[in-house]
């Protein structure tokens, strides 16, 4: 019966038409608009926050966010010496979260991170940061030695282990960061679109049909779930960046 629902091609789900500058490198579409909003909204919130001794309203929200990043991300992954990375990790957290949350905001209905561009940018930032921190705190040789030649490995196995370590540290880490965020948000987006298309098609058949098969209840439930996923993905992205920074700060294994 539901074969009647024609699922739209994937490009209809994730590719958005240009608002201006089509074909140019500055082509401005919905993804770019969300990226800009992910800058503008935190800026407005932070500027709205008052400087009271007893926080309330927006100030509470802003300080709660800063404290969450400091306590849950930095102190638990790096320790007190990682507090100097608060601006970077807070920016990553905010950018990922506001890029995600537009998935459930009406008229947008699209997470910016369901396109590969923003995750790639953030992963490159994390990659450059943890390599930079490693070189700065251990020196280039020390960093390479500690990340490529783990101690306690038999000499004969060393080339293989080094190759695996190189791939996992310098290639899989940024790749994993980007793909984790991208695939999570794309999967959530496809889920929401699936149930959205289902609901709309059934609504066109008749209002009763939209409510009867619980597709609308699923849509509402999944929307709440995606809000949670947006938050968790922002948390996980900044937490993983912090973990990589902390692994670079001291020789591990």
């Amino acid at each position: 019966m539901f074969a009647a629902l024609e699922f739209p091609p994937i490009d209809n789900l994730v590719k958005w038409p240009a608002y201006f500058g089509e074909g140019q490198f500055y082509e401005f579409n919905k993804i770019a608009l969300i990226s800009l909003l992910a800058v503008i909204i935190p800026t407005i919130l932070f500027l709205m926050a008052k400087r009271d001794l007893v926080p309330s309203g927006v100030q509470n929200l802003v300080e709660g966010t800063v404290e969450f990043v400091e306590k849950q991300v930095i102190l638990s992954a790096i320790g007190p010496q990682g507090l100097k990375y608060t601006p970077l990790l807070l920016s990553i957290f905010l950018f990922v979260f506001f890029g995600n949350i537009f998935e459930v905001i009406p008229t947008f209905h699209m997470p910016a991170n369901a396109r590969m561009a923003n995750p790639v940018v953030l992963a490159v930032v994390a990659w450059v940061t943890f390599i930079g921190v490693g070189i700065k705190s251990q020196g280039f040789g020390g960093f390479m030695k500690s990340s490529l030649f783990p101690p306690g490995v038999p000499k004969a196995l060393m080339p293989l282990v080094s190759l695996i370590e190189f791939i996992s540290t310098f290639l899989l880490r940024p790749f994993g960061l980007a793909v984790r965020l991208f695939a999570n948000m794309l999967a959530g987006h496809i889920l929401l679109v699936t149930f959205g298309v289902l609901c709309i098609t059934l609504w066109q058949v008749g209002p009763l049909a939209a409510i009867l098969p619980f597709s609308f209840a699923m849509l509402v439930g999944l929307t709440g779930f995606e809000v949670m996923v947006s938050l968790i993905q922002a948390f996980v992205f900044s937490l993983l960046t912090a973990v990589y920074i902390s692994l670079s700060m001291s020789a591990h294994h």
């Binding site: 240009a18 500058g21 140019q24 490198f25 500055y26 082509e27 401005f28 579409n29 993804i31 770019a32 990226s35 800009l36 992910a38 800058v39 935190p42 800026t43 932070f46 500027l47 926050a49 400087r51 009271d52 001794l53 926080p55 100030q59 802003v62 300080e63 800063v66 404290e67 608060t86 601006p87 970077l88 807070l90 920016s91 905010l94 950018f95 910016a112 396109r115 561009a117 923003n118 790639v120 940018v121 953030l122 930032v125």
Partner: peptide, 29 residues
Amino acid sequence: PELFWGALSFAALYLLVTFVLLPPVKKTM
């Protein structure tokens, strides 16, 4: 284009947070 706008936006957010947004909040805290 999306890479361009993403990188631009994140750079702007990072600079804003580092130099404009975070210091007063941290000071209050």
